[in-house]
Amino acid sequence: MPRSDTTHARPPWLFKEYSPVGVDLGSPAAVAVYDRNQGTDPDADDALLDRLGVAQDTLLIDLACGTGSLVVQAARRGAHAHGVDISEQMLAFAQARAERADVTAYWHRAGFLDYAHAARPADVVTTRSALHQLPDFWKQQALLNAAATLRPGGTFYLRDAIVSFPPAEAAEQVQRWIDTAGRPAGEGFTKADFEMHVREEFSTYAWIVEGMLDRAGLDTVSRTLPSATHAEFLCRRR
C-alpha cells in the first residue's frame, strides 16, 4: 500500500509530537494490545461513515488513524481513504489490516501539526481519541491544519476525551471517571491507564474546543456529550 513520510519537514520549535506522552506504542505487541483495548468495531466504523456520508470516491483523511479500522472500512466502500499517524508500528498494523481486507488505502507517517496533504482537498476529515495528545496551544494549530486539508463545505468530525463538567467539580468527576472506566488488565484500559491520561495528557473543556473549532474556520453542526468526560463534534468548513 502507498506510504509517505513527512517527518523531515518539522521546524525545531514545533511541539514534540513524535515523542507522545501516554501509552507506549513502540512495539507490535503494544499496538496489538491497544487495538484490543480500544474495542475495534467495524460495524461502529460503518455507522460513523454512514453518518458522515462516506461513499464511493469520497476523499477521507483520518488523522491519528491508529490501527486503521476506520480507514479500511472507508476503503471497503470505494473511498479514497488516507490514514495519518506518527507511529510506524501503528501504520504497519493498519497496513496489514488493509492487506487482509484486500483494499487500497494510503498511509502517511505524519502528525496533526506537520501533515501536508498533497491530493485534492478532502471531503471528510476525522480524528478520534487523539487530539488530547496536544496542549491547547497546539490543538488550535492542529485544527487549523486539519481545516486547511478540507474543501469548503467539507466535513470535520472530532471525538475525544473532552470534558463538560463544571471546573469546580473536576476532582469528583475525574475520580468517578477513573473508577467506572477502568477495566481489569487484559480486558481493556485499566484504572492506571486513565490515571496516566489525566496526569500526563491534555484533555480540555468542551467550551475551549468550541472556540478553537470556530477559529479554525469550522462551523459546528452538532455537538454531542455522551458523558461528562467525552464529546463529539460534527463540523463544516466555512
Rank of each mutant, 00 (worst) to 15 (best):
F112P: 00
G186Q: 04
R109I: 05
A171N: 11
A118R: 14
M196D: 14
Y106T: 12
F233D: 05
V23G: 06
G154T: 03
Y157T: 06
R236H: 13
M90W: 02
E17I: 00
A231R: 01
G217W: 02
D35A: 15
D193N: 12
L234D: 09
K139D: 05
M212K: 12
A79C: 07
S164M: 05
F189L: 13
M90V: 04
T149M: 14
A146V: 05
W138T: 07
V72T: 06
A98P: 03
A231D: 06
H108V: 05
D85V: 05
P135Q: 09
L150K: 01
R236P: 00
G186N: 05
P184C: 06
T180A: 14
L143C: 04
A47F: 09
H82D: 08
A142G: 11
G68N: 04
S129H: 13
L60E: 02
L134K: 04
A170M: 14
A96G: 09
L14R: 13
E88V: 11
S203W: 09
L14E: 15
A171W: 11
E88I: 10
Q38D: 11
Y106R: 12
A161V: 15
F194M: 12
P184R: 07
L48V: 05
G53A: 07
S69Y: 07
T180E: 15
L213V: 07
S4N: 09
